[in-house]
């Protein structure tokens, strides 16, 4: 029988207690056990970036982490990030610039973009591209995504300056 383990974690600010198979990865746990399907699974080997989310405030690949390892962690999914209001400007910029087509990469892309913006980095196109280098988008060709992130990074500049 597959082994199971009890875990307690915070997901989008809410405490979750659950018993899970130890082989279950975090992305599948969130999607299948908690019905948080905004976390998308694209490659299951850490290359495409679709499953990117935050664990303890840092962006990680949720396909490369066991749910068991999230015990005691603070996990934020796209549903929580969107509801928090933190990325409202990014979401608007993505819509305005058509920085998504099919939308499958978008949750992971938004986490990578939010990471860039939250670090108060300047609206430098090369730096943005580098920060998004682990997030695959088949639809857009990336330019509109870079446009959107730079626009928000520039807005941030007028608010408080960059690092």
């Amino acid at each position: 029988m597959p082994e199971r383990i009890g875990i307690t974690l915070k997901v989008n600010g809410e405490e979750v207690r659950q018993e899970v198979p130890v082989r279950l990865n975090l992305a599948d746990f969130l999607r299948q056990e908690l019905a948080l399907t905004g976390t998308h699974v694209g490659c299951e080997h850490g290359v495409c970036g679709a499953c990117t989310l935050r664990v303890n405030g840092r962006i990680v690949r949720s396909c490369l982490m066991l749910a068991a390892q999230a015990d005691g962690c603070d996990v934020q999914t796209i549903e929580g990030l969107a509801a928090s209001g933190e990325i409202a400007a990014l979401q608007n910029a993505f819509i305005e610039h058509n920085a998504l087509q099919c939308g499958y990469c978008t949750p992971g892309m938004l986490f990578a973009a939010a990471d860039y913006v939250a670090a108060r980095r300047p609206p430098n196109r090369e730096a943005v591209r580098e920060h998004l280098s682990g997030n695959y988008c088949r639809c857009t060709g990336y330019q509109s995504i870079v446009d959107a992130v730079c626009e928000v990074a520039a807005q941030d500049a007028t608010k408080g300056g960059h690092k």
């Binding site: 850490g46 840092r58 990680v60 982490m65 990578a112």
Partner: peptide, 12 residues
């Protein structure tokens, strides 16, 4: 370090 994979991979 910046040449190793990508930010989300380097975090973990």
């Amino acid at each position: 370090m910046p040449q190793i994979a990508h930010p989300a991979i380097r975090n973990r």
